[in-house]
Every structure is written in structure tokens, then in C-alpha cells.
């Protein structure tokens, strides 16, 4: 699946600006950024589920087929079968009136034309595959009867039901306890490998992305500001925003007290994300960036290749401005 120069706008407010992403079969891609950076919008673009009010431009290709601007009817054929998605709130994402087995059986019966017993057998196999304890009993349970981690497993089973080539996971672990989140990440990685299924893992949790993915994108204000192999980007971030994001991580190394005895404060990125209709014209990060200089506010930085597949869109890294602020 490939997005080329895809933009999403809501009457003047740009939620996504000329994003290009391509996802190879079996690849695992992380998308990182703060709330409102456009990462969820990117995920929805992959499902054709951008809100009706949005204008989408650019090209969205799935196995060579152009889907940008395709009607709902066309998209529907690909959802669940080619691209599936799981969402942030497993508590709210399951129909509370249906037994979770029925929920997973529904796409099997509708899309694959399976009979009820056949669909039930498949749902049971899926429940085993996603590691639900006592899968047979789980089939008959209602969402309110199982825990958050189990609900997310049910949602993963639902997403896998029609054997999609790509699974988009939008903040799948944010609402879960840390240890449960970890096991969900392990499950997603294992499934991606065993089924050769591509995984797009959207999160603001850098640790989760580092565990789940091989490649990653960093987004800010609707722009992709940095991308590259996950380990490399996290070890040597080049864009000031990525550096700020890594610095803002609460971790053991930031704990404790400073030499003069004061408690260490968590480093934060100064300011807040500006609203979508009030983003700076040039680099979206200008205004909050500590290393800002002349061109930042006016000109949009183009991605600069940094070797090893890593690239970042920052004027500091551009050959045109070589030597500026190379701290």
C-alpha cells in the first residue's frame, strides 16, 4: 500500500500535508507524534475512513489500484479483507450487545460467506491465535465481562478475521496497563511475522514503537518531519522535534536529583501544538523550535537524506543552509 502526496483538509484546516508513505508486505511501520499531529488521520486514510467533511487529495494505492476519491462502496470491499484497523479504546470499540464470538463471526459470515458453525470454528481458531485464555468460553462472553487487554485481543481477532495484508493499529496500547500493553505489542509483532502481514503501529509511546516496528515516521502538525529505521531514528534523532520528543520521555536516566540537590524536572518541548487552522506556513515546528533561524517560518523544509535510510525535513540539515546552527 502506498500513499503519495496525500493531504487532508477540513475547510482550511490542514490535518495532513502531502504525506507519502509506502508499506511493503510484512513491513512494520511506526507512526509517532503528539495528539493532533495527523497520525490518526494518516491511519484513517489507509482505511478510506476519513470523515465526510474532509477533502482528500493525492494518491492512495492498494496493490496498484488507485483508491483516492473512490466511493464508500469500493473502499468497503477492501476493509477487513485487505486493510483492517484496531483502535485506541478497546472498552468502547466492541458492540456491547453482542457476544464477542458473534462480533468476530460477523465478518466471516458476511465477507467470506461461511456458515455459522464454520464461522464459529474460525473464530475459535482466531481466539487461540490471539492468545485469549479459554477461547471456547470467551466466544460466549459479552464485552463487559472481559478485561481491557482481552477486549483488545478480541479486536485483533476481529481485524484478522478476513486475513488482511495490512493491519493499522491506532494507539492500540494507550488505554491498557503497561504489562498488558507489552503483551499486546508482542502479539502484534508475532502475528505480523507469522502471517506476513504489514503492520502500521500508531502511537505516541516511543518505547512501544521501538518494540513493535522496524521503520518509523515522526509527525508534527500534519507533516512527516523525520523517518527511517526505528532503531537508528531513536538512537540518533536529527530533527529538533524528534530530539525534543525523545528528551521528553520519562525514564530512569532522567530521574533523581541534579548536582545542586534539586529534583530533576522532566524536559518538555516548550509551548503547545498550535491548532490546525493556525499552523505556521513554513516548518510546522517553527515557533516552538529552539534552533529556529531565518527560513523556518516562511519556507517548508524538504526531507534531507541522512544515510542509512533516515531522512528529516529540517532546514538545519539541508545542504543549502549547511553550517547553520550545527550544534
Amino acid at each position: 500500500m502506498a500513499l503519495t502526496q496525500v493531504s487532508v483538509a477540513f475547510s482550511g484546516a490542514v490535518a495532513l500535508r502531502e504525506a507519502s508513505v509506502s508499506i511493503a508486505p510484512g513491513a512494520r511501520l511506526g507512526i509517532v507524534g503528539e495528539s493532533g499531529c495527523g497520525k490518526s488521520m494518516l491511519g484513517l486514510c489507509l482505511m478510506g475512513m476519513v470523515p465526510d467533511a474532509a477533502q482528500v487529495t493525492g494518491s492512495i494505492r492498494l496493490n496498484g489500484q488507485e483508491l483516492a476519491g473512490a466511493p464508500e462502496r469500493v473502499w468497503r470491499r477492501h476493509r477487513a479483507r485487505d486493510v483492517a484497523m484496531i483502535f485506541q479504546e478497546p472498552m468502547a470499540a466492541l458492540n456491547p450487545l453482542k457476544r464477542v464470538g458473534e462480533t468476530v463471526m460477523e465478518p466471516l459470515m458476511i465477507h467470506e460467506g461461511l456458515s455459522r458453525p464454520a464461522a464459529r470454528a474460525r473464530a475459535l481458531a482466531l481466539f487461540e491465535e490471539v492468545g485469549l485464555p479459554d477461547p471456547a468460553a470467551s466466544l460466549r462472553q459479552y464485552p463487559h465481562e472481559i478485561s481491557g487487554g482481552q477486549r483488545q485481543r478480541v479486536l485483533i481477532a476481529l481485524a484478522l478475521a478476513c486475513d488482511p495484508g495490512l493491519l493499522v493499529a491506532d494507539e492500540p496500547t494507550t488505554a491498557l496497563d503497561a504489562n498488558v500493553a507489552l503483551r499486546i505489542i508482542e502479539l502484534l509483532v508475532r502475528l505480523s511475522k507469522s502471517r506476513n502481514m504489514a503492520l502500521v503501529f500508531i502511537s505516541h509511546d516511543l518505547a512501544a514503537v521501538s518494540r513493535a516496528t522496524e521503520q518509523m515516521l515522526v509527525m508534527y502538525g500534519g507533516d512527516i518531519v523525520e523517518r527511517g529505521p526505528t532503531a537508528q531514528v531513536l538512537a540518533a534523532p536529527r530533527h529538533p522535534y524528534t530530539q525534543g520528543l525523545l528528551g521528553a520521555r520519562p525514564g530512569l536516566e532522567n530521574r533523581g536529583r541534579t548536582p545542586d540537590g534539586r529534583r530533576k524536572r522532566l524536559v518538555t518541548i516548550p509551548g503547545t501544538v498550535p491548532p490546525l487552522f493556525d499552523l505556521p506556513q513554513g516548518c510546522r515546528f517553527s515557533g516552538r523550535c529552539g534552533q529556529e533561524f531565518a527560513p523556518c517560518a516562511r519556507h517548508r523544509p524538504q526531507p534531507t537524506a541522512l544515510g542509512g535510510g533516515q531522512e528529516a525535513a529540517c532546514h538545519l540539515l539541508s545542504p543549502l543552509h549547511a553550517g547553520r546552527g550545527a550544534a
Partner: peptide, 26 residues
């Protein structure tokens, strides 16, 4: 507006199915 309706859409069900089988009962 609820999440599980989005889940049903993401499962590739038709508008009518989503409306009558997922929205209406709830």
C-alpha cells in the same frame, strides 16, 4: 458517534448493515 460503530464500518459492512444491526439495537 460511538467507537463500536466505527469498528463495524472498519469491518467493511454496508451502511444498511451498520445502521440496522449495530446502531439500532444500541
Amino acid at each position: 458517534r460511538l467507537d463500536y460503530v466505527r469498528t463495524a464500518r472498519a469491518s467493511g459492512f454496508s451502511r444498511q448493515r451498520v445502521l440496522w444491526r449495530h446502531v439500532l439495537p444500541n
